[in-house]
Amino acid sequence: MTSVADRTNEELVSAIAVDRDRTAFAALFRQYGPKIESYALRNGAGRAAAEELVQDVMLTVWLRADSFNPALASVGTWIFTIARNRRIDRIRKETRPEIDPNDPALLPVADLPPDRVLELSEDRRILSVAMNSLSPEQSEVLRLSYFEGKTQTEIAEERNIPLGTVKTRMRLALGHLKRTLQPRMV
């Protein structure tokens, strides 16, 4: 067997799902534990709540490893969505509103005409290009505001820049996304 250090994150998750491999779990824990904790702290959690979230999320990783699909998301994105949902559920004491993939009322991609299905992957590409073509300053303001849940005043203080600058960067960033993405919605 290859050593843990040689395995990709995808292989580690698969080893947990298939073999209940605790060594693979430990490797993922060492790598993602600090990211989960940092994510919680940046979103305003105290140290104890952040440590609890690490436990909660990593236990979910252990239990739900079989639901990870590398064709849909990277391991980082998958663990992020678990951390996001568990963080919200713990704060709101309620389940985050999400679609039910088995809902008879849901419109599945399979019901779309083939040209619209092609459009979906093109949409993702355009969106990714739009995000990547933001200036570093605009991207940072989006990240701090949306991903770290900070107010514009907090961002201004943290970065030591005028509040007006934060507002301008935010407006430009959202305007850029909207302009780039709007044509696909027609």
Binding site: Y32, K35, W78, I79, F80, M131, F147
Partner: peptide, 13 residues
């Protein structure tokens, strides 16, 4: 979510 995954991967020590 994939963008968030990129930001998430950039966190922590």
């Amino acid at each position: 979510e994939a963008e968030c995954g990129g930001w998430f991967d950039g966190l922590g020590g």
